[in-house]
Design a binder for these strands. Structure first.
Length: 800
RNA sequence: GCCAGUAUGGUGAAAUUGGUAGACGCGCUGGACUCAAAAUCCAGUGAUGGAAACAUCGUGUCGGUUCAAGUCCGACUACUGGCACCA
C-alpha cells in the first residue's frame, strides 16, 4: 500500500536538513521546557518501555510548537558510572570508547522513532567540557563549607579487596566472587545536604509534582518534631542528650538506650565495669549488615552498661543505660529515653530484659502491650490530669526550656550526601591535599581535572580508586603554596552529573559559565519533567538540592528547578514480567519499526493504557494501531475538492480538536488516540470527505504519527508541511448537535430513550417521559412522587 | 507498621467529576471477497432468561447517604509503589 520505511527516512532527513527542531531563544515567543530523564547509555540499547516517555513528551512538544510556543526538548547522556566501567573491564575496552559506541546505538534507535529532540544541544556528562563545570560546582560547595571529609563506612570485599557499590552487594554477598561483604572505614567527601532538609521540604509547595512523587520526597526527608532533653550522668558533669517526639511521656522513662557507636562508651571506658562484655557485643553488631541490623521482625538484642547511670531531669530518678541495635547513631543523638509503657519497641525490650514499666497515660492495658493512644496523664507531676497530647507536649517543653534541661527540636531522616566513589569512571574530585595547606581546590583555570589515559581501570586491591595507582597523575603541586602535593583519587557519584544537566541544555556550548544568566532567565524552570518512580527520591532530591544551593549563592535566579514532575508507568514484557535480557522478553523498538513502522509504534506506546500505570506489551495492540494508520492513508481516496468542513462532520471534528488538544496537555494520551479513531470511524461512514476535513485529521494526528501525516499532507497537496503549520482551533458553538438522546428513568432505572431537540424545556421533557409507552408500563398502579429533570440528560420519575 | 495509589467484560482500558457503565483498541463468533489462505470489508460480542420486545443481575467485599453511586461517606480485603527499630 505504502512504503513506511521510505516515508520515515524521508521526513527524518527533512527535519534534520531544515533544523526543524533546533530552538533559539526568542523573547517574542513564549517558552516551554520539556525534559525527560537523560538515558544511561548501556550496552543493551533501548527497549520499547524506555521510549514511552520520550514519545509522550514528543507528542506534547510537537503540539506546543504548532501552537506557537518556543519549545526546548533536549537530550543528552548520563554516561559515567559503574555499568560502563564493568562492561569496559569485562570486554577489555576503554570506557570512553564503550560510551561512544553505546551512545551511537542509543542515538540511532531514538532517531528512527522520529523524536523531535534538539540534537544541537546534545552532550554527555563524560565530556570534559561538561564535567569541567561539575568539578567547578564541587569547588563552590567546598568554598561555602558545604563539602567536608569524614570517615564513612564502605562495602568492602576482603576476598577481591575492592570497595563495592550498594548495587554490587545484593544479599550482603560480593557480586564478583560470592564471598561475604564487610564494612570498612574510609575518608570520604560529603555534601551537607541535611542542612537543606527544611528548604527541600518547603520548596515542594512551589511545584506541581504528582502526589505520589511529593509524598515519596516528603517521606525521604522524614521530618519529625519533638524535643531534645539532657539527662545528667550520675556523679559526672557529662550530659546524655536524647531526641524524642513524645516529651509528654518523660515521667515514664525507665531506662536509656544508646547506639553501639555512641561516643560515651569510649568516654566512660574506665568507669564501665563490664567493658569487656560491651566491646564484645559491639563487635558482634558490626559484623551484621545494615539489613540484618534494621530488620525489625527479629528480636531486639542489648546489654546493660554497668557502672554508669543517668538521671531523669524531671524527677531525679536514677535510670540504667543500655546498648541496643535498635538505636541508630545516624539519627537524632544516637541515644533515646525509653518509655516502655507507651512505645512498642521499648516495651518489647523491657519485657525481654525484665525492666520496669511505668504507665503515664491512662487508657491501655500495659500488662499486655504498650499503649500508644491518647488519654489522661498520670504519675507525671506537672502534667497530671491533662488529656490532650498537644497541650501536654507544649507544657513540658516550656518547662524544660525554663529549667534549661531541654528544648524543642526538629529532626530529619535526610542525611548528608556521601559524595566519594572509589572508581575510575567518574568525574575526578578536583581537590589537592597539601601537607601544609590541607585540602585545597584546583584552580579554576586548571579545570577540568581530566581522567588520565591508563592501561588498567580495574579497582585496586587496597580500597583506593584506580586513580591512586597512577603516580604521575596523583603527584602534583599545591595550588596555594606550590609545594609537592597529592590529588584526591576518588571520583564523584553518578548522581553528580545528573544533578544539573537540565541547566546545561539551556546553554550547552558556554565555556565561560555553566550556564549564562540570560539563558537562565529565558528558559527558567523546567515546565514538565518526566521520569520513573525509581528516581522520585534520590535523583530528584539531589537535583533540587544542587539547584537550591546555587540559588542561595546567587548563580540561579529561582529556587526550584522543576515546575511539574510526572512519573510514567513501566512497560512489562508480554509475559507480564519486567523486561530483561535473562528472561528473554525484551522487545527492541528497531524490530517493531522494521515490521510496523515508527508511527504505529509511537501510536501504540501512547494508546497502551493509563500513562502513569504499568502496562503489558502486546504486539496485537501494536497491530491494531498499524491498522488505524492504514485506514488514515486509505481514506485519502475519498477526498473531494471542497476546502470547507463537511456539514455532517462539523460537530465531531470540533469535538475531536477539543479532546485531543486537552488530552495532549495532560497525560491522557490513550484517550487522545481513541478520539482520533472515533473521528476516523465517523469519516468512513461518509461517501466523501473534504480536503479541510482530512487536513484537520492529519494535523491532530501529526504529534502522534508525524511521518505518515506529513507524507499524506504533501501527497494530497493540502498545504505547507504540518510541522510548520498551526494547530487547529475549535469553534465553541459547534461542539454539540442540535438534538440529543433524552433518557427516561423510573426510580433511577433506565426504561426508555428518545431523540429530542436541544431546545426542549423542562415541562416538555416531563411530558415526553410520561407519554413513553415503556415508562407508562412501569407507572401502572403506582403513585408519582416527584419528577427530576436534568437538562440535556435525563428525566427520572420517582414512584411509590 | 506508617504514607500514597490502584481494584471495571475473555483482554488493554473509557466514563462529561453524582446523571445511559463498558467509549476506543485487541480477541472471539458469523458473513462477504478468494480455488484456498493471508490481508481487507460488513455484522455481532458483560452475564442470565427470552424468537423478540424486554426483564433481572453486574464496576474487589460489607454497610450507608441520595430521586440517582464505578464516582461521595464508613469499615474491610487484595495488589502496586515509597519509607521503615527514625525514637
Amino acid at each position: 500500500m505504502y512504503d513506511f520505511k521510505k516515508i520515515e527516512a524521508k521526513w527524518q532527513k527533512y527535519w534534520d536538513d531544515n533544523k526543524t527542531f533546533e530552538v533559539v531563544e526568542d523573547t517574542s515567543k513564549e517558552k516551554f521546557y520539556y525534559l525527560i530523564e537523560f538515558p544511561y547509555p548501556s550496552g543493551d540499547g533501548l527497549h520499547v518501555g524506555h521510549i514511552k516517555s520520550q514519545t509522550a513528551l514528543d507528542a506534547m512538544a510537537r503540539k506546543k510548537r504548532m501552537m506557537g510556543y518556543n519549545v526546548l526538548y533536549p537530550i543528552g547522556w548520563d554516561a559515567f558510572g559503574l555499568p560502563t566501567e564493568q562492561y569496559a573491564i569485562k570486554n577489555k575496552i576503554h570506557p570512553t570508547i564503550a560510551t561512544e559506541n553505546n551512545i551511537k546505538v542509543f542515538k540511532d534507535q531514538i532517531k528512527r522513532i522520529g523524536i523531535s529532540f534538539d540534537w544541537s544541544r546534545e552532550f554527555s556528562t563524560t565530556d570534559p567540557e561538561y564535567y569541567k563545570w561539575t568539578q567547578w560546582q564541587f569547588i563552590k560547595f567546598f568554598e561555602h563549607n558545604m563539602a567536608y571529609k569524614e570517615k564513612k563506612e564502605i562495602n568492602w570485599c576482603p576476598n577481591c579487596k575492592i570497595g563495592l557499590s550498594n548495587e554490587e552487594t545484593e544479599g550482603n554477598v560480593c557480586e564478583r566472587c560470592g564471598g561475604p561483604v564487610e564494612k570498612k572505614l574510609k575518608d570520604q567527601w560529603l555534601l551537607r545536604m541535611s542542612d537543606y532538609a527544611e528548604k527541600l521540604l518547603s520548596g515542594l509547595e512551589d511545584t506541581y509534582f504528582v502526589e505520589r512523587v511529593k509524598t515519596a520526597q516528603t517521606n525521604w526527608i522524614g521530618k519529625s518534631t519533638g524535643a531534645e532533653v539532657d539527662f545528667k550522668i550520675k556523679d559526672s558533669s557529662e550530659v546524655l542528650k536524647i531526641f524524642t517526639t513524645r516529651p509528654d511521656t518523660l515521667y515514664g522513662v525507665t531506662f536509656m538506650v544508646i547506639a553501639a557507636e555512641h561516643p560515651f562508651l569510649e568516654k566512660f571506658k574506665n568507669q564501665i565495669k563490664n567493658y569487656e562484655e560491651v566491646l564484645n557485643y559491639i563487635n558482634n553488631i558490626k559484623k551484621k549488615t545494615d539489613i540484618e541490623r534494621t530488620d525489625f521482625t527479629k528480636e531486639k538484642t542489648g546489654i546493660k552498661v554497668e557502672g554508669i547511670e543517668a538521671i531523669n531531669p524531671v524527677n531525679n530518678e536514677s535510670i540504667p543505660i543500655w546498648i541496643s541495635d535498635y538505636v541508630l547513631m545516624g539519627y537524632g543523638t544516637g541515644a533515646i529515653m525509653a518509655v516502655p509503657a507507651h512505645d512498642e519497641r521499648d516495651y518489647a525490650f523491657a519485657k525481654k530484659y525484665d525492666l520496669s514499666i511505668i504507665e503515664v497515660i491512662k487508657g491501655g492495658d500495659i500488662s499486655r502491650e504498650a499503649y500508644i493512644g491518647d488519654g489522661e496523664m498520670i504519675n507525671s507531676g506537672v502534667l497530671n490530669g491533662l488529656t490532650d497530647k498537644e497541650t501536654s507536649i507544649k507544657k513540658i517543653i516550656d518547662y524544660l526550656e525554663i529549667q534549661k534541661i531541654g528544648t524543642s527540636k526538629v529532626n530529619y531522616r535526610l542525611q548528608d550526601w556521601v559524595f566519594s566513589r572509589q572508581r575510575f569512571w567518574g568525574e575526578p574530585i578536583p581537590m589537592v591535599y597539601c601537607q601544609e595547606c590541607g585540602w585545597v581546590p584546583v584552580k579554576e583555570e586548571d579545570l577540568p581535572v581530566l581522567l588520565p589515559e591508563v592501561e588498567s581501570y580495574e579497582p585496586t586491591d587496597n580500597g583506593e580508586s584506580p586513580l591512586a595507582a597512577i603516580t604521575d597523575w596523583v603527584n602534583t603541586t599545591c595550588p596555594k603554596c606550590g609545594k609537592p602535593a597529592k590529588r584526591e583519587t576518588d571520583t564523584m557519584p553518578n548522581w553528580a552529573g545528573s544533578s544539573w544537566y537540565y541547566l546545561r541544555y539551556m546553554d550547552p556550548k558556554n565555556d565561560q559559565a555553566f550556564v549564562g544568566q540570560d539563558k537562565l532567565k529565558y528558559w527558567n524552570m523546567v515546565d514538565y519533567y518526566n521520569g520513573g518512580m525509581e528516581h522520585a527520591t534520590r535523583h530528584l532530591l539531589y537535583a533540587r538540592f544542587w539547584h537550591r544551593f546555587f540559588y542561595d549563592i546567587g548563580y540561579i535566579p529561582y529556587p526550584e528547578p522543576f515546575l511539574k514532575r510526572v512519573a510514567h508507568g513501566m512497560i512489562l514484557g508480554d509475559d507480564g514480567q519486567k523486561m530483561s535480557k535473562s528472561k528473554g522478553n525484551v522487545v527492541n523498538p528497531n524490530q517493531m519499526i522494521e515490521q510496523y513502522g515508527a508511527d504505529a509504534l509511537r501510536c501504540y506506546e501512547l494508546f497502551i493504557g493509563d500513562y502513569e500505570k504499568t502496562a503489558t506489551w502486546s504486539e496485537l495492540g501494536l497491530k491494531g494501531c498499524k491498522r488505524f494508520l492504514d485506514r488514515v492513508y486509505k481514506i485519502g481516496s475519498k477526498l473531494n475538492d471542497s476546502n470547507k468542513i463537511t456539514d455532517q462532520l462539523e460537530v465531531i471534528i470540533n469535538q475531536t480538536i477539543k479532546k485531543v488538544t486537552e488530552d495532549l496537555d495532560s497525560t491522557n494520551y490513550n484517550t487522545a488516540v481513541s478520539a482520533l479513531m472515533i473521528l476516523l470511524n465517523e469519516m468512513e461512514t461518509q461517501s466523501q470527505i473534504s480536503r479541510l476535513d482530512y487536513q484537520t485529521l492529519l494535523l491532530l494526528l501529526n504529534p502522534i504519527a508525524p511521518h505518515l501525516t506529513e507524507e499524506l499532507n504533501q501527497k494530497h497537496e493540502l498545504g505547507k508541511p504540518l510541522c510548520e503549520s498551526s494547530w487547529p482551533i475549535y469553534d465553541k458553538n459547534k461542539l454539540a448537535y442540535d438534538d440529543f438522546e433524552l433518557v427516561f428513568q423510573v426510580n433511577g432505572k433506565v426504561r426508555s430513550k428518545k431523540q429530542v431537540p436541544l431546545t426542549i424545556n423542562e415541562e416538555e421533557m416531563k411530558q415526553e417521559a410520561l407519554n413513553d409507552d415503556n415508562v407508562k408500563k412501569h407507572l401502572e398502579g403506582k403513585e408519582v412522587v416527584k419528577i427530576i429533570c436534568i437538562p440535556k440528560r435525563l428525566v427520572n420519575i420517582v414512584v411509590k
